[in-house]
């Protein structure tokens, strides 16, 4: 089975005298390395220069609010159901009087946790959400010292009211994955 066209048949044939000398081979090897010496470097000086992410990049999640600042999530559980890694858990609660500003529907997620150590960033939760509440952004899940800190609760997930996260430019992959 050929996986690529760059395969090479290995053989242990007797080396000729010229090959046994090794010196020509060393010279060719040096030629290759020296050629690379002058090649275009691929390194990017990261903090100063950043590479553009692909539009379909999927980073950490965000729970969106609607235009009024109310949480869109109704704790329907479809995302948890869709999650192949079983990273999402939630606890639903009923909206109290006076909380209309906070939650869009009568039911909301009292607790919404994603275990980032389990999450595989497949984006199926985003697909499953009927309320367009959960999105994957282009930011990274940062490193932590403790495992517990990787279980993101609503504090980390829900977008701040005063610092909305724009997900409109995020491209959608064509067709279902």
């Amino acid at each position: 089975m050929r996986l690529t066209n760059r395969y090479k048949v290995v053989s242990d044939k007797k080396m000729t005298f010229a090959e046994k000398l090794y010196l020509p081979a060393i010279a060719t090897g040096l030629g290759i390395t020296i050629r690379h010496f002058f090649k275009q470097k691929v390194t990017i000086s990261y903090p100063e220069v950043k590479r553009e992410y692909a539009p379909v990049f999927r980073g950490r999640h965000v729970l969106k609010r609607d235009e009024n600042g109310a949480e869109r999530c109704t704790a329907c559980g479809l995302c948890a159901l869709a999650c192949p890694a079983e990273a999402i858990t939630m606890l639903a609660a009923e909206r109290k009087r006076g909380e209309e500003q906070l939650y869009r529907e009568e039911k909301y997620a009292e607790k919404y946790e994603i275990n980032m150590l389990r999450c595989i960033f497949c984006g199926l939760c985003e697909e499953a959400c009927p309320k367009e509440a959960i999105f994957l952004t282009d930011t990274h899940v940062t490193a932590e010292f403790h495992r517990d800190d990787f279980i993101y609760g609503k504090k980390q997930l829900v977008e701040p009211v005063d610092n909305r996260i724009d997900v409109s430019k995020r491209g959608k992959p064509s067709g279902r994955l």
Binding site: T33, H36, F37, Q40, K41, V42, T43
Partner: peptide, 8 residues
């Protein structure tokens, strides 16, 4: 070494 490996 970096240069030969196309690094900086």
């Amino acid at each position: 070494a970096a240069f030969m490996q196309d690094r900086l």
